[in-house]
Simulated assay, not measured.
Amino acid sequence: MSEPAVVPDMITVMSQQPPSRGQRRKLRTRTALIEAAQEIFAERGDLEVSIQHITEAADVGFGSFYNHFSSKAELLDAALAEALESHAAWLESVLAHVDDPAEVFATSMRLTGRLVRTRPQTARVLMSGRGALLSASYGHAPHARRDIEAAVAAGRFVTEDIEVALACTAGCLIATMHLCDTAPEASVEAIADQTVLNVLRMFGMQDDEARRIVALPLPVDEPPSTTL
């Protein structure tokens, strides 16, 4: 997936001057288009619909689309980036007080796996994100890579290749969310925690310690109300 041409507005460093009325209107229109794209992508897994369909879903004029995006592909990149960045920023905030990188990594995985229940539309965007959860230079991927590297440096994880470890992490997360999404009668919490337990074992952690970490109380289980 190509990187978005524009950094999502929600994570852009705003100037000290308050935005003008025209800037606020432009931001609202762009946000509406991104929200519509996220909803369509979560439902369909693609944006193989007309631009008119997207603008109608966003309740904005057709001519407004090209004031913000050059193509549907660029809009999709921005929609995925914003979903990923929003989730990553939330994880950073709730885990800022945790010093153990292995615990940060495990808790991030546990909370992400629970998105199928807590934020199902976000989960569907991540599941259909064309590998963004693994390879994007923004969002969850660089945070997970950082946590794995820190856990290896601290002697908490053992892995010979960080990129393979990241691939295993992303693959397990996506597969777990798919499993929970297709088996609504299953316990999302139990499946997510079992996945994390197995990943910790895969990274060389002793069973007793892995079970201790997975049994820790979660700092929070409900992401704040956002676009998704």
Rank of each mutant, 00 (worst) to 15 (best):
L197H: 13
W90F: 13
F62V: 06
L133C: 06
T182L: 08
V188I: 15
A83M: 11
Y66F: 15
L134V: 06
I148Q: 10
A73V: 10
S64T: 10
R119G: 06
A192V: 08
G131A: 02
E56H: 11
V116G: 01
T107A: 00
D181M: 04
L91G: 05
L76V: 07
V158L: 07
H53I: 09
Q194T: 14
G63N: 12
Y138N: 09
V125S: 10
T107H: 01
S70Q: 13
A151I: 10
F65G: 04
V152T: 06
H140D: 03
L173C: 07
G139Q: 06
G155H: 08
T169D: 00
A150D: 15
H87D: 02
A153M: 11
S128D: 14
A141M: 13
R117D: 14
R130W: 04
A154K: 13
D161L: 03
A57S: 14
I148V: 14
T176L: 04
L91W: 06
L91H: 11
S93G: 06
I148T: 09
V158Y: 00
T176V: 09
I148F: 11
V196H: 07
D161V: 08
Y138V: 09
S187V: 01
V152H: 05
E92H: 10
T118P: 03
H97F: 05
D181I: 00
L197C: 05
M109P: 00
D59M: 10
A150P: 08
T195R: 08
A150C: 06
E185Q: 11
V164M: 10
A170L: 02
L80I: 15
H68C: 05
P184C: 03
A170R: 02
L91I: 09
I148E: 11
R145G: 13
T118H: 10
R130K: 13
Q121N: 15
L173W: 05
C180I: 15
N67P: 03
I174Q: 12
T107D: 01
A78W: 05
A170E: 11
G113C: 03
A165E: 13
M109F: 13
